[in-house]
Write a protein that binds this DNA or RNA. Structure first.
Lengths: 228, 228
DNA sequence: CATGGACGGATTGTATCCAATTCTTGCGGG
DNA sequence: CCCGCAAGAATTGGATACAATCCGTCCATG
């Protein structure tokens, strides 16, 4: 059998994980030797994974300087969410008429999975299930490139997403909104779904924006080099 | 001075060029050793460039099999153009109010540059100038991520674009449409620009679609391996 | 004749080594 | 004290060498 994955793919997953969980925070330089050692591979597959994350917009790359986790300004964040609004609306409008009973069941189960994770306070599991919940809807549009673009936009803010779900109140509001969305889906009420989704999104952008401009930025993070 | 570019960037440019000009056609496998030799580098920087093109959607990658130039189905093509319509409309609506006199002059000059290339029958120069013309507008929206997504969508069809401009009639229609768009820009008539742009786009999708389903596909191309 | 399995060449994947660039540090001069 | 600047250290960029995988072929077997 050939279920074995290549080292570059394994490293890519671990990098995503580390960005999502904040092990690698905004502004950090990704020193290749250290990371390669940490992941137990050589620098070659690591560099290919870094290149992927760069072209997805999660990292920035300066030749001969290295890769850094992107730091988003408030404007950057607004742009990402503006583009998400545009594309997610389109995805939902294409998806809802195409949903079959099986899809609805899957989506409902994912909503429950999120709720369970929220109750448990398992932030990691919650972000994971949350992404599957939303993309179950987007993917139903049957437009792979659209899904791909949306994945990029979601990942662009992964470095900040972890912070968001730290707040218990955020977690509970989210599950309530999801339940509303599932009901609207079953009713095939496209306009209502889009409206709920827009509202849902603007709540999270507001929350992340608040986290973005704190009085006191986390002072622990070390920034080995400043960028030009 | 440090104006020198890295090998991976140079290779990336040459790969884009070769895809755009059809040296590398849809379905071709990119054999690393041959390409590396052709470009005069080792496989390491080449692979990083391939990784970039993969995550942009111009190549597909099968682990342990290699990279192949994507082959677009009619549905794929329609999806790309549908997404372009969505995002380009948004870009234009944001851009037009922001254009200053300098931008308008630049855009006009680019339109003339395209026309000159069309007259000369210089397909390569025409596609190049055409891209700069359109992105001069999109970029004026001041949304770098939007520009980036659009660049990806444009490049996704690069492998087919060269064919389009082969037709002399296509080339002439295009320049006429550009002139109309420039006039509408000067008048700040947003709705008209968007309408013209949509029409412009649907002409090219129709033409490429026709090229995509020919009675006789090009039989010369060798396909070393078939994909799963 | 069809099928399956082992061998060998071709291609990709990874590690290691060296070169090139950038960053840091410390020193001297103003 | 501050700036410029020159070595040395740290880091990235690239080339080569080797390992792993895949694919086509050929032969044995039923």
């Amino acid at each position: 059998m050939s279920a074995r994955t290549t080292a570059q793919d394994a490293v890519l997953s671990r990098l995503r994980e580390d960005i999502l969980t904040g092990v690698l925070g905004p502004g950090d330089q990704l020193v290749q030797e250290s990371l390669a050692e940490r992941y137990g591979v050589s620098r070659v597959p690591l560099r290919e994974a870094l290149k992927t994350l760069e072209s997805e917009g999660q990292l920035v790359y300066y030749p001969h300087r290295g890769y850094f986790v992107v730091e988003l300004s408030t404007d950057d964040l607004r742009e990402v969410y503006h583009l998400r609004a545009l594309l997610e609306d389109a995805a939902l409008r294409a998806a809802v008429p195409a949903l079959d009973e099986r899809d609805l069941i899957d989506i409902s189960e994912l909503a429950e999975e999120i709720e369970q994770a929220a109750v448990d306070g398992d932030v990691r599991a919650m972000t994971e299930a949350n992404r599957r919940f939303h993309f179950a809807m987007y993917d139903a549009a049957g437009m792979p490139r659209l899904s791909r673009l949306l994945r990029q936009l979601w990942e662009a803010t992964d470095a900040y997403r972890a912070l968001y779900y730290q707040g218990e109140d955020n977690r509970h509001r989210v599950t309530g909104e999801h339940a509303q969305m599932v009901r609207a889906l079953r009713a095939r009420d496209v306009d209502r779904i889009v409206a709920l989704h827009d509202e849902h999104r603007s709540h999270s952008v507001a929350a992340v924006e608040a986290l973005l401009n704190p009085r006191s930025r986390n002072p622990h993070r070390s920034h080995p080099r400043e960028k030009p």
